[in-house]
Structure formats: structure tokens, C-alpha cells
């Protein structure tokens, strides 16, 4: 197995070395990456989209269809994980005589140090503020929907690790859980439909000056939906893998 793997790796490496030998050097301002559509985005992106962070502009306005399908992909991943039997099976809650004893045992199994508990509880609001700031100022500084989704998701996972399963499950309101998980695809579809009615193109953004506020609103709605939906999906993936099998 090992010799086969080494041989395969060598063949792949040789092929790729031949491949990169034919590539133009990177970092060259006149390379093909920088002279075709990328140059147009850099020159006209701010005027056309009103977004100063061009990564966000490409993500939502120019390449919105990719992002739509990508949001659907992570939603599908969550559905796939939840569809596996162990993710949804909950252990029956202990009752009667042995309940107190078994709860104490569960407490002893993974005790959280009070220091770690306090520090995570102190830091969590700051992490949340950082995530919200990167969402709110995502058009002028590095940041945006996906970044703040990743940060909020990581914060929820840290809280879940420290506070335990039951408390972490309460971070996502139970009644709204299904809607929050599907928030990304649903809102993307709604905005795409609005764009279709306005411009005649699916996921189209109105380009004229008069529709500036509307275009801004569409981008903001998409960013918030990606951030909230993505964070909830990341937290749910953690909860599903954390469930006892």
C-alpha cells in the first residue's frame, strides 16, 4: 500500500510540476489573472455595486449564483448529518431513584474548570461584538457574511464545550431552529426572486443610480442571512457530532 501510494504521489507530483512550468509567473501585474475580468471588477466594482470591499462585491453581486449554490451545499451537509441515526437519537433522561446519582456522574465525567468557565463567559460577548463589527463594516474592512458566520459559529461551539450540551442547545431558540437553519437558502432565493422581478435576471441587482438604496438593502439582507444561517448551521453540526451514539 505504501509503495503504491508513493508511486501515485510521484506521478501526480510530476504531472503537476509539468503543469506549473507552463503557468505565467504569479505576482505579475500583466498576468492573465489581472488583465481580464478581474481588472474590470477592480476598476468599476465600487461604482457598480457600491461596495468598497471588492471580495464582498464579487461574492454577492458578480458571482451571486455560486454563493447561492454554496449556501445550499452547507445546508445539504447539515441535512445529511442530521439524517444519520445517531445525530437525532437522544439518551432517555434519567428518572426516579438513580437520577440524582447519574446526573452527578455526568457532572463528574467532564468537569469544566471554573477559570475556563469564567474566561470563556467573559470573552464570548467580545467575540460576538467582533463578529457583528466584521458584518456591519464588511463593506469597508475585511469581513462580511461568511467571516462573521465562522466567528459566531466558533463562539457558539466554545460556549457549547464549556456550558455543556443542554445549555448550548438553548442558544438556538427551539421554535425558530428549522427556519434559522434554512435561512441562507430561503433568503437567497427570496432576494433572487426580487432581483428577477426588478431586472428580469435571476439574482440580478438593479444597476441604476436611483435604485441605490434598494441595492444596498438587498446586499445587507443577504449578508445577515449568510451570517446567521451559517453560524446556526456550524453550531448544529457541532451539536449533531457531539450527540452520544
Amino acid at each position: 500500500m505504501r509503495t503504491f501510494a508513493l508511486a501515485l504521489v510521484l506521478v501526480v507530483a510530476a504531472t503537476m510540476v509539468i503543469g506549473i512550468a507552463g503557468l505565467p509567473p504569479h505576482g505579475d501585474p500583466d498576468g492573465p489573472v489581472h488583465t481580464h475580468v478581474g481588472a474590470r471588477y477592480l476598476e468599476q466594482g465600487v461604482a457598480e455595486t457600491g461596495l468598497r470591499n471588492l471580495v464582498t462585491a464579487v461574492l454577492l453581486v458578480y458571482r451571486g449564483f455560486d454563493t447561492f449554490l454554496e449556501v445550499v451545499v452547507i445546508f445539504t451537509a447539515l441535512v445529511a448529518v442530521l439524517a444519520l441515526p445517531s445525530a437525532t437519537r437522544q439518551p432517555p433522561p434519567p428518572r426516579g431513584e438513580g437520577a440524582a446519582a447519574s446526573r452527578r456522574e455526568a457532572d463528574d465525567a467532564v468537569p469544566v474548570s471554573p477559570v475556563v468557565f469564567l474566561v470563556v463567559r467573559l470573552l464570548a460577548p467580545f467575540i460576538a461584538v467582533f463578529a457583528l463589527a466584521s458584518l456591519y463594516r464588511g463593506h469597508v474592512t475585511p469581513g462580511g457574511g461568511f467571516q462573521s458566520a465562522a466567528i459566531i459559529g466558533a463562539m457558539m461551539i466554545a460556549l457549547g464545550l464549556v456550558f455543556g450540551r443542554e445549555h448550548a442547545a438553548r442558544l438556538v431558540p427551539h421554535g425558530a431552529k428549522a427556519w434559522l437553519q434554512a435561512l441562507g437558502p430561503l433568503v437567497f432565493a427570496a432576494v433572487a426572486f426580487v432581483g428577477w422581478r426588478l431586472t428580469g435576471a435571476f439574482l440580478g441587482f438593479p444597476a441604476d443610480e436611483a435604485a441605490y438604496a434598494l441595492r444596498e438593502a438587498m446586499v445587507v439582507v443577504l449578508e445577515v442571512a449568510i451570517a446567521v444561517g451559517g453560524a446556526v448551521i456550524l453550531a448544529q453540526l457541532f451539536m449533531a457530532l457531539d450527540a452520544p451514539s
Binding site: V33, H34, V37, G38, Y41, L42, G45, L54, V55, A57, V58, L59, R63, D66, T67, E70, V73, I74, F146, Q147, A149, A150, G230
Partner: peptide, 14 residues
Amino acid sequence: SPIPHAMVLTGIVV
């Protein structure tokens, strides 16, 4: 170029 960044951003989450 912003295009590779946008591609990689979606790629990481996938």
C-alpha cells in the same frame, strides 16, 4: 485580484 478570494471563501465553508 478579488475573484480567487471569493472562490476560496466559499470553498473553506464547503
